[in-house]
Amino acid sequence: MGSLEWMAWTLPTAIFFVTIALILTGMTVWQIISPGTERRGFLPMATTRGDRLFIGLLGSAFIHLGWIGLTDLSLWWALAISVAYLLAMMRWG
């Protein structure tokens, strides 16, 4: 196998993917230790933890895109809003 230079890794993207991988691993371990079930929150359908995580992450992606598209402010704000949104989604979604 040749080098993996063509994958063009950077530190920020590496941190991003490692974070995603850690979240997924964490969710798996959590599910094994204390299995969760479907429940109803403010979303219009019953969801499991995994569903809410997915909705949270997808929403966060669009929060970032909206932030980049509509404002010139620092991206850290978008990250903060996303984390708050993600946690709210996990708790009450």
Binding site: W6, M7, A8, W9, T10, P12, T13, F16, F17
Partner: peptide, 13 residues
């Protein structure tokens, strides 16, 4: 997954 990661890497460089 590998091509997806690579495209994400491209997008910031």
């Amino acid at each position: 997954i590998i091509p997806l990661m690579t495209v994400v890497n491209y997008s910031v460089q």
